[in-house]
Amino acid sequence: MKVLFITNMYPTSDYIYNGIHVKEQTDYLTSKYNLDSQIYFINGRQSAINYLKSIFSLNLFINKNKFDVIHIHFGLTGLFLLFNPFIYIPTVLTIHGSDISSSKLFGLLPIITKMVTKRVNKVIILNENMYSLLSKYNYKLIQIPCGINIKQFNIKRANNPISFTIGFPGDKRRPEKNFSLFEKIVKELRNTHTNIEIIEFHNFTRQEVIDNLSKLDCLLMTSFREGSPQIVKEAMAAGVPIISTKVGDVEKLLENVENCSVINNFDHTEFLEELLKLYALDYNERITNGYLKLESLSLDQDSVTEAIYSLYQTINK
């Protein structure tokens, strides 16, 4: 099977963690099912003009090659479909979150994503909320959250019972990550506890993510929105306690997971209360059964790619 992956989420030399989960998924699919695959990367971070350029270059590229399936990651990267009504190749779109809920591009991003949704055969969504946002196209939707290599993150915890280390999941400069709330919570905690350390999980290599997860006493997510956050799954596999806002599929992920909590508001006092509960635990008690929960949800990379490949087969008949 010859598959074209089109994405604006892919590692670059200046942003090595950008879209690493997309790269890992496409690599795993290609290797496991012996696909003849090609990656077409649209570097939107470099310039928004690249999306416009892709309209013409992608259509030329597709016309010169015979693909069995096209898999688009992120709604905006499917812009080329809106300018070519004569592409009849079976096409899958994975929606990652901000492409259907963000106000960027003057609110045009969700509109473009819905227009692309209309053109494709199937749409992979990451959480239940996306069903309601795309209710008109429910017959096209299938929920397949991105998976992780669970064994890679099932790690031994670093021995540092002196400090209480909190992880911030993402780039603090991104508004949707809501770093101001995180900062407020930590500031309150430091009023009574001086041994607090912070690790910002941004632009790490895979090994750096693993090494730093092993140091955490808690991952604290204060985001306004998420799709199906990979860092939460990685922390679960590593046995790290997680406190998070109710975003994406986090509530489903953390249901019945020990020492984890989901807060349905942005009141810093509620986050602080949960943090203090973790702080009060003995160092060796700050662990979770997240690894087992991931296995029960079939969020290992093998199960996820099997579901995606089955989808390719279905639309390619």
Rank of each mutant, 00 (worst) to 15 (best):
Met1Asn: 11
Val3Leu: 06
Ile6Asp: 03
Ile6Val: 10
Thr7Asp: 00
Asn8Cys: 13
Ile16Lys: 10
Gly19Asn: 10
Ile20Ser: 10
His21Ile: 13
His21Ala: 14
Val22Arg: 12
Gln25Asn: 15
Gln25Ser: 15
Thr26Leu: 06
Asp27Gln: 15
Tyr28Thr: 14
Thr30Phe: 05
Thr30Met: 02
Lys32Gly: 02
Asn34Thr: 01
Asp36Pro: 01
Ser37Asn: 08
Ser37Met: 03
Gln38Asn: 07
Ile39Pro: 11
Gln46Cys: 01
Ser47Gly: 01
Ala48Trp: 06
Tyr51Trp: 14
Leu52Ile: 15
Leu52His: 08
Lys53Arg: 15
Ser54Leu: 08
Ser54Asp: 07
Phe56Tyr: 14
Leu60Gln: 14
Phe61Asp: 10
Ile62His: 13
Asn63Lys: 15
Asn63His: 15
Asn65Gly: 15
Asp68Arg: 07
His73Lys: 00
Gly75Pro: 01
Leu82Phe: 14
Leu82Asn: 11
Pro90Asp: 01
Val92Glu: 04
Val92Pro: 03
Ser101Phe: 07
Ser103Pro: 14
Leu109Cys: 09
Ile112Pro: 00
Ile112Thr: 00
Arg119Thr: 14
Arg119Gln: 15
Arg119Asn: 10
Asn121Tyr: 13
Val123His: 10
Ile125Met: 02
Asn127Phe: 09
Asn127Gly: 03
Met130Cys: 02
Ser132Ala: 15
Ser132Phe: 13
Leu134Pro: 11
Tyr137Arg: 04
Tyr139Pro: 06
Gln143Thr: 11
Ile144Thr: 07
Gly147Trp: 02
Lys151Leu: 06
Phe153Gln: 06
Phe153Ile: 09
Phe153Met: 04
Ile155Pro: 06
Lys156Gln: 09
Arg157Gln: 11
Ala158Gln: 06
Pro169Thr: 05
Gly170Val: 05
Gly170Met: 09
Pro175Gly: 03
Lys177Tyr: 02
Lys177Glu: 02
Asn178His: 06
Phe182Ser: 00
Glu183Phe: 08
Lys187Glu: 11
Leu189Lys: 04
Thr192Leu: 12
Thr192Asn: 15
Thr192Pro: 08
His193Trp: 11
Ile196Pro: 02
Ile196Asn: 03
Ile196Lys: 01
Glu197Gln: 06
Ile198Ala: 03
Ile199His: 07
Phe201Ala: 04
Gln207Leu: 09
Asn212Tyr: 12
Asn212Asp: 14
Lys215Tyr: 13
Leu216Thr: 11
Cys218Asp: 08
Leu219Gln: 05
Arg225Ile: 01
Glu226Tyr: 05
Ser228Ile: 06
Pro229Asp: 09
Gln230Glu: 04
Val232Phe: 08
Val232Asp: 05
Ala237Ser: 14
Ser244Ala: 08
Ser244Asn: 02
Val247Pro: 04
Gly248Met: 12
Leu253Ser: 03
Leu254Tyr: 03
Asn256His: 09
Val257Gly: 05
Asn264Gly: 05
Asn265Tyr: 04
Asn265Ile: 04
Leu272Thr: 13
Leu272Ser: 08
Glu274His: 09
Leu276Cys: 04
Leu276Lys: 14
Ala280Asp: 14
Leu281Met: 15
Arg286Val: 01
Tyr291Ile: 13
Leu294Gln: 13
Ser296Cys: 14
Ser296Gln: 15
Ser303His: 12
Thr305Pro: 06
Glu306Arg: 05
Ile308Thr: 08
Thr314Gly: 00
Ile315His: 01
Asn316Gly: 00
